[in-house]
Design a protein around this nucleic acid. Sequence first.
DNA 1: ACCCCAGGTGACAACGTTGTCCAGCGACTA
DNA 2: TAGTCGCTGGACAACGTTGTCACCTGGGGT
Lengths: 346, 346
Amino acid sequence: MTDTARGSSRRYGTRPTMKDVAARAGVGLKTVSRVVNGEPGVTPDTEHRVQEAITALGFRRNDSARILRKGRTASIGLVLEDLADPFYGPLSRAVEEVARHHGALLINGSSAEDPAREQELALALCARRVDGLVVIPAGDDHRYLAPEIAAGVATVFVDRPAGRIEADTVLSDSFGGSRDAVAHLLAHGHRRIGFIGDRPRIHTAKERLRGYRTAMAAAGLPVDDAWVSLGTTEPERVRTAARAMLDAPEPVTALFAGNNRVTVTLVRVLRQRTAPVALVGFDDFELADLVSPAVTVVAQDPARMGRTAAGLLFRRLEGADEPPRREEIPTRLIARGSGEIRPAHG
Amino acid sequence: MTDTARGSSRRYGTRPTMKDVAARAGVGLKTVSRVVNGEPGVTPDTEHRVQEAITALGFRRNDSARILRKGRTASIGLVLEDLADPFYGPLSRAVEEVARHHGALLINGSSAEDPAREQELALALCARRVDGLVVIPAGDDHRYLAPEIAAGVATVFVDRPAGRIEADTVLSDSFGGSRDAVAHLLAHGHRRIGFIGDRPRIHTAKERLRGYRTAMAAAGLPVDDAWVSLGTTEPERVRTAARAMLDAPEPVTALFAGNNRVTVTLVRVLRQRTAPVALVGFDDFELADLVSPAVTVVAQDPARMGRTAAGLLFRRLEGADEPPRREEIPTRLIARGSGEIRPAHG
DNA sequence: ACCCCAGGTGACAACGTTGTCCAGCGACTA
DNA sequence: TAGTCGCTGGACAACGTTGTCACCTGGGGT
């Protein structure tokens, strides 16, 4: 048994090509191509012979060759932060749905919040000649994509803006949503409100902090430095930050969580405490209404973000030649109880 | 302005090729190829000239052509049920992680539980000449994949077995997990236990039902037909089924939910009722410990399933020539409270 | 009877890359 | 000094498909 023998059955070379089909059907190569692509100009009789050869040989068109020839791949790339994060599930699903509607496949990868990996992935997708790219930025410099965009790769940034480059962008209203969230807590009598958010490098984290500060300022309230903590969403980090705020001499009476991972950790922290602390989280999550107290949130609409992004992308692909757009998706405060707790000594 | 003028900047044809780079660097085509692929046999000086030309022109290798030439695409396909379902997030992430480790990209799509769409997707991926395929079956006949598998596409089925075809498979221990879940309820004194599961067409639903029946039989208990309800996971369907069981003359005192979607709906149903009803769910979910009572579940390990599947796939790609394997991933009962409620008149 | 036309069909080049193979050139050895 | 070796570099074919164009055949019009 030679090694050729072993490998031969796995060789792509053994796959039948149009040439093989043509030979078997006794027709020309181009005729097979016509049948495969449903082009007109083939007698029913010929077509039948070709179809028969196709099934007999188990032929399947090699899209790699087709793509090479046609230039368009009918696929779009999606670079996101983490496929396993519940925020991105509906988003990717929405992108996929739109892509499917346009006959395109979705190729995706997770950057794990690492700018280098984001770039590596995005460029790998460009090398595959995806027609378009939906990117949830991990880094803040996307100039590396400029040549690709110039070469015709429609590119849309979602959830966070592109860095140092002009491009279509779809964002949640992080600032407005956060302002509303904090205003909600203020309206319920809180004066000392803590904010625990994601790393300051991340745009949405900054925007949400800005919303928090703006709401506090609008109420004429000072913000103690100890009330703000930005960092990773690791549960341990969040727990430590929360404890510091809650165990201070003048503890906060309410917390505003900068994202869904933080909110979940805070729910766990707060349930171990006796003193009631109000909580509002940015981004909704499943079962938020079932924990007790039910968690008040600023809901985003990830599916809509995905749909909007993919929509913009395909507009470009269809030739829309307008300056880059920036769509802002509104957020919605959903009051469920945890934000309505009044401060103990209100 | 002619239409050529409008479209020209978006044409792939305008992208520089190795030929262009070679011309600019004053070297041969193959030398550029060597530099791009880091092959030896190029003087530092020449290499430098080529690198310069590459950056100057913004060249990026066209992987379509490379794929066509080499036969291998360095990408694997993933066909799942719904990207937005929290069960599949960690699973796809795990597959992606392994793929990345092998230098492969992930192309994926959702079948939406529709066999026709599953087939369409899987075959589209094969036409793209993915090296391998991870499929979470929606249908129960996968003979359509036989030619592809024969042609060398490594294929692994996950979560549900392949239909009418032999192939590597990775499953959760649905039967054993369900038996344990029901045994747990029995141990807490329940005798009338309801099972609400997914559509009977789905293999895991059948297996979980079998586990339920086996546990009941082992305890010498009859199963009333009214205690079993299989169907979609639509909340409305599940609510109706639950109400019928709970409002019967001889109501069930405990419920076993066949999957995570059903469990969540049941939690909502039960919290509106005064009489305590025990609940165990198949498949864990985030915050299961935070609702009250905390939900006892049979936990699966989707990440491990994904890793195992991708592992099998790459073993095949690396030439493993063994008969199809069937890996069963054990489940784990996590008692949190909801399963430990004793029947009112126990 | 001739010409023309239309529709069906096939030969051939091209897409951009990689593998094969050979040529050129400088250096080292006998 | 001549022969040889090793290394760099390039010409060319091939991967499987599609677009272009020309050929052929048969039928209808004059």
